[in-house]
């Protein structure tokens, strides 16, 4: 490590480095999303602007898929928003990172907060590593860059691309979240609230007509609530 590098730069670089394997997953999703955007009649410019201002891959995919399905703008918007409800809980859990920062840093960090960099930050800390605001921002900017490059290329060169599912690449994020969950497990009692989250979201998805994205957010909140109420968790 270079000697004069400040703590912030080191944190930033560590974020970029740690997110690299996930950036490959994001690249695959980016190309797939670009393909979908092309089917919806979006050009490279619209795809790029959407990636920069929304920056929430799964909701972009769902919203544009609704457009392709002919569901109309309103339905597309509602579906995309529903999928992003979980981000409320993500930024809520980042409160200590953003507190007492200049407004622009808070707004930047909030905009860059997503599943991957947020989960990595917590996993790194659970493993005893140091990771703070600039770790989140470094990883987030790296993902933003990859997302923009791949979605715009996907939209522009739609015909030349293979289908990710045929190669098993659609499973990349599920595998990544399994690894991250493993590193979040510090002691056996950590797992108990997760059990409530798993049971609640599974019950909601299987037994009620509720949208999976609501089931996910409710299940996550319920598990956290159990941890809050049960003082041994």
């Amino acid at each position: 490590m270079i000697r004069n590098l400040s703590d912030q730069s080191q944190d930033f670089i560590a974020g970029v480095r740690d997110v690299t394997p996930l950036a490959f997953g994001v690249a695959i999703y980016g190309l797939a999303f670009g393909l979908l955007a092309a089917q919806a009649g979006m050009d490279g410019m619209q795809t790029g602007v959407m990636g920069a201002v929304v920056f929430a891959g799964s909701s972009q995919i769902v919203a544009v898929e609704r457009i392709v399905a002919g569901a109309g703008a309103y339905a597309a918007l509602i579906a995309g928003i529903a999928l992003n409800l979980r981000i409320f809980l993500i930024t809520a859990s980042l409160r200590s990172e953003f507190k007492e920062r200049p407004l622009w840093q808070m707004l930047l960090g909030v905009h860059l907060a997503g599943d991957e960099n947020w989960a990595l930050l917590h996993a790194k800390r659970a493993g005893g590593g140091k990771a703070g605001y600039w770790y989140l921002v470094g990883a987030g900017l790296c993902l933003m860059l990859v997302w923009l490059l791949t979605t715009v290329s996907g939209a522009s060169f739609a015909q030349a691309l293979p289908e990710p599912r045929a190669l098993g690449l659609d499973f990349a994020f599920a595998a990544a979240f399994i690894a991250i969950l493993r590193s979040l497990c510090r002691r056996a009692s950590d797992v108990l609230p997760w059990g409530f989250s798993i049971a609640a979201s599974a019950t909601l998805v299987l037994l009620t007509p509720i949208e999976p994205s609501w089931a996910l957010a409710l299940g996550g909140a319920l598990g956290a609530g159990v941890a809050g109420v049960w003082s041994h968790a």
Binding site: R86, A119, F177, I180, A202, G219, A233
Partner: peptide
């Protein structure tokens, strides 16, 4: 305690929904 448990809970719920 709830906020500390939130990341794991949310990822566990996310995986559950994906795998279902």
């Amino acid at each position: 305690r709830a906020f500390n448990a939130l990341p794991g809970c949310l990822i566990a719920a996310l995986l559950t929904v994906i795998l279902i």
